[in-house]
Structures are given as structure tokens and as C-alpha cells.
Amino acid sequence: MKLSIFTVVTPDLTPEEMGAAAKAAGIDGIEWRFKETAQDVKDEKPSFWRNNLCTIDTSTTDAELERYIRIAQDNGLQTISVTPYLQAGDLKSTERVLQVAQKLGASMIRVGVPSYDGTKHFNELYALEQNYLKGVEPLAKKYGVKCLIETHHNTITPSVSSAYRLVSSFDPNHIGVLFDPGNMVHEGFENFRMGMELLGPYLAHVHIKNTGWKKTEVREDGSQGWTSYWEPNLQGIVNWRQVLTDLKAVGYDGYLGVEDFSGLYESKELLKKYSEETRAILASI
């Protein structure tokens, strides 16, 4: 297994600074965050989801993409993914991301999945996603870039089984699943090894982060409230030694992408810590 960085977690570094830091930490691959940055947030302090300096803007031209190709080459890194925030059903934007991914030599992108908040029936959202993936699959084949849906809380795919239900009728050469155990602690927990076995060839990528739960205020009915929150990779509920052991057991040999949102470490330290911790676990199993 190889190590990658999703650049959402290095918001204060320029792409060049991130590339050098990833090289120094022994990281193998890059997942570029692909998102427009609103003009009114560009004076803000860098942050994961707003003024993120380590982001490819959606309006970037093909000529400007050469910058990101050069960063990867200069630091011995493989661009493995372009990771956007697509809406389910938006095939035009999906094709644009695939074009960028192909230009950068990436092997995969993340595609949209509907959010779920109870205001629309699940079956309606499921049908929307199915129709979307039917349009995505030929585009993935055309550009030679696999399209992944992520196990993510507050969507219709919080668990592996819900993601598998969506992708199982598609070709795993073109459609796959981004397996994110940290997200599944917030919502969608299933035995991680079981999920890997269920996915089989659809298991295309893994994100490494972690989550905890803590008590909050007592609810009006007197019951105890709880909330989830981000933890450092080795300090949350996910037992990453066991998960990596299970990934090895099922034959997974792809990338492990760091996505630590705990805020405990500054960006360069985060990459170094992630590499040291994860390589130590991999060496021990």
C-alpha cells in the first residue's frame, strides 16, 4: 500500500510548498482538491473548506494545469485523483473534472452523491444517483479515469452496504467506492472487514482519518445528547492497525489518503506524522 495526501488537509500551504513537504515526508501520491474559491473568502485565514490555498480552481486552464503536473514531477509524486464537490446529476461538471484528471494523469475522481436530511424520500434520491451513474460510467470509460462514490455521513451512502447497492450493477473498472471508515463513525458504521469483503473489486481507494464521540447537553426528554467530532488518526474510534491488517488480508494494494481534520498538527508536521505512523503500522503487519 502507498500513501497519498488529499490537499484539503494542507490549506495553508501553496501547491509548491505542499509538494515539497509531501516529498520530505515520504508521501507517494497527491489527491488535488478541485473547487472554486469565492472572492469574498480569499482574505480569510486558510481553512479546510473555505480559503484553501492548496486547491485547483475549477476555472483553471489547461495551460495553468502544467503547474500541477510540474509539482508532481519535481517531487516524485503521482497525481492519483482530482477530488471535487460534484452534485449528483451534473454530468457537464463531471466531464470537466474527468478532463482535468486525464490531463494530470490521475486514475480516479470522486463523483457526486445526494445528501440526505429527510426532506426528500430516499427512493427519489437513490433513483437520481442511479441515473447519474448511468451517465457517468461511459464518461469514465471514455477518459480512462475511474469514478468513485464515497462512504460519507449525511448522504445516501453513509455505509459500505449502501454504497455497494448503488455501484453493484456497474463495471468496477469504471465505477468504484472510496472507503472512509472515519466518516462511518459519524454515521453508517458496519464491520470494516465485512465491508471490504462486500466491495471486492469496487474497493478503489481509502481515506485515513478518525472520529470520536462525546456527551453534550441533556435533551428535553431527559436523555443524554451526544455529538461526533474529528480526532487525530490514531486517537479516535477507528482502530487503524486492524483496518490496515484487514485491507492487507483482502488483497488491497492501493493508496491510503490522509484526511486528518483534527487540527492538532500544522500541515508539514501532519504529513510527517501521518507517514511515520502509517508506515510503522504497515511494517508491523
Rank of each mutant, 00 (worst) to 15 (best):
Q87V: 10
Q87I: 10
A88V: 02
L91W: 03
L91P: 04
L91A: 04
L91S: 08
L91V: 10
K92C: 00
S93W: 00
E95L: 06
E95V: 07
V97S: 08
L98P: 05
L98H: 03
V100Q: 06
V100M: 12
A101M: 10
A101V: 05
G105A: 10
G105L: 11
G105S: 10
G105Q: 12
G105D: 11
S107L: 04
S107Q: 11
M108I: 07
M108E: 14
M108Y: 05
I109C: 02
I109E: 02
I109V: 13
I109F: 02
V111G: 02
G112W: 00
G112V: 04
G112A: 05
G112C: 03
Y116Q: 12
Y116D: 05
D117E: 07
G118L: 12
T119W: 03
K120V: 10
H121Y: 00
F122A: 02
F122P: 01
E124W: 01
L125G: 02
A127E: 15
E129V: 03
E129T: 12
Q130E: 13
Q130W: 05
N131A: 14
Y132T: 06
L133P: 04
K134Q: 14
P138C: 05
L139R: 01
L139K: 00
K141I: 00
K141S: 11
K142P: 06
G144H: 08
V145D: 01
K146Y: 01
C147Q: 05
L148N: 11
L148A: 06
I149G: 04
I149D: 01
E150F: 00
E150I: 01
T151Q: 01
T151H: 02
T151W: 03
T151F: 01
H152I: 01
H152F: 03
T155V: 03
I156F: 06
P158A: 10
S161F: 00
S162Y: 00
S162I: 01
S162R: 00
A163R: 03
Y164T: 08
L166R: 07
S168T: 06
S168P: 01
D171S: 14
N173T: 06
N173Q: 15
H174E: 04
I175D: 02
L178V: 08
F179A: 07
P181S: 08
P181D: 13
V185M: 12
V185K: 06
E187K: 05
E187Q: 15
F189L: 13
F189K: 12
N191C: 13
N191I: 09
F192E: 11
R193K: 15
R193A: 13
M194L: 14
M194N: 12
E197N: 13
E197I: 10
G200I: 09
Y202D: 08
Y202P: 02
Y202N: 08
L203T: 08
V206K: 08
N210K: 09
T211H: 11
G212L: 11
W213S: 13
T216V: 15
T216L: 09
R219C: 07
R219W: 06
E220D: 15
E220Q: 14
E220Y: 06
E220S: 15
D221S: 08
G222I: 07
G222V: 03
G222A: 03
S223D: 14
S223A: 13
S223H: 12
S223P: 11
G225I: 12
G225K: 12
W226Y: 15
